[in-house]
Design a protein around this nucleic acid. Structure first.
Lengths: 243, 243
DNA sequence: CGACCCCTTGATTAGCCTCAACAACCGTGG
DNA sequence: CCACGGTTGTTGAGGCTAATCAAGGGGTCG
């Protein structure tokens, strides 16, 4: 257990011992949830956030017309449920795509981090902005590109995210999402997702085996989907000195 | 000149004199731009961010297929161009919708803020998260609601944002956007935006006079568009103490 | 073994886009 | 001040993308 957030952040900075300790202090308790569990419902009053230790999750919004929009897919090392910081309650639902292990911590702990570790606070701010850009990219994808590119972009994003996890072959992975899930990310129906994935497979851009996916030509897929790897070019040069 | 950011933040906190001084230090130079000016192009290398003093702006992404997606509309008091923080370059273009006045400042200044004013840093983080939620709402709008609701949501958002500016009648305002602009926000064509606005007017939800818009039944418009006023319920109780 | 979920494919429908034409408006320069 | 060109708003007709409806197959779990 523990150390997931520190490991993630150490991709961007060389952490001091004190910084690492401050981060690890957030990961002292761990809770596990089964695949499919709704860890937190939209509108639930809550004070805590989670650091994902293991497994995949997603956050989603329920619409008045009975539909659902998945906003973001989360991987180990991610900080999730941050909307409880800004509001008294959760703005989105958190759902486990696979069996997951999470470290919850109260938002007061984050206040301490802002006071004592300004460099880490600034880094978290930076990463929040980078995540905001990937949301912007998804808006552009859903608003202005055809179905095939939307599905392609999602696959590129997942691949890039997996690339940050050590040991993972980011070009070939188990995809624990149903086609309905993929539709709820990309603003499509499950039926149309099915046709687009078949089309991508027919064009030798991807290969499917059950729920396993392999990107056969990640380069071309990224180009035709308009994918930018935002996480690749993070700039940490402006951060304040560590304490 | 000056004080716009402090005034915005004072909606959420009672600022100390030192905090206010720290914020005002960011607004010492001011630059003006004409309506229609592209203040910053996507991919431009840059080190500075802007605080909007006066006027409306938007940030947008250019797609490979020649189209454009407007991500966010900005009002006085907004911090814009933050993507230069996370990347060496601008991830989106910044365009002036009206004549605008902006206060640029280097991102190093923000590092100082994180060191010396942890409470303000945490508040900026909180507001960034709230803004992230409004992006999530837009994703849901574009991905899962019909054209009429997408246009309605945009009008609700603009109205709510104007409500934060003092002196503004948020139910009735001059809208300095073309229908093509509105389409580029909502993922529609200008032609279809036109039809939806006509439909909203025919149903007595809005009233139009040239570029002036009045929301006749903001309540009903918000309901049918799935609008949540995220900026209304900001929680600042967790912030660290001021210095 | 049965029930359920998920994937797959076909047929039809609907919402939005494209193309087109014209009117109204605006800023510009003479 | 007016004439002009370009931009924006408006409306109609037709086409295409993706949704909807429907049915069958495979896999998994109880």
């Amino acid at each position: 257990m523990g150390g997931c957030l520190a490991e993630r952040l150490s991709h961007y900075l060389v952490l001091t011992a004190r910084e690492e300790a401050a981060l690890n202090a957030l990961e002292q308790t761990e809770r596990s949830f089964r695949r499919g569990t709704i860890v937190r419902h939209e509108q639930d009053p809550a004070r805590d956030l989670f650091i994902v230790q293991k497994g995949w999750m997603y956050s989603c919004i329920l619409l008045g017309n009975g539909t659902r929009q998945i906003i973001c897919i989360h991987f180990p090392g991610d900080l999730v449920g941050v909307s409880t910081l800004a509001f008294g309650k959760s703005a989105d639902s958190l759902v486990a795509l696979t069996d997951v292990a999470l470290c919850p911590f109260d938002k007061d702990r984050l206040a301490g981090l802002f006071e004592e570790q300004p460099r880490l606070a600034a880094l978290l701010f930076t990463l929040a902005i980078a995540e905001r850009e990937t949301l912007a990219d998804r808006i552009a994808s859903i608003g202005r590109t055809p179905a095939r590119a939307r599905v392609g972009l999602l696959l590129c994003e997942i691949s890039a995210r997996l690339g940050l996890l050590d040991g993972a072959d980011s070009m070939s992975f188990q995809l624990p999402m149903t086609q309905e899930d993929i539709g709820d990310v990309t603003g499509l129906t499950a039926v149309h997702v099915n046709r687009m994935m078949r089309m991508l497979a027919d064009d030798n851009l991807i290969e499917r085996n059950g729920s396993h996916v392999r990107l056969l030509d990640g380069q071309r897929l990224a180009e035709e989907s308009g994918f930018n790897d935002r996480l690749a070019g993070i700039d940490t040069s402006w951060l304040p000195p560590s304490r």
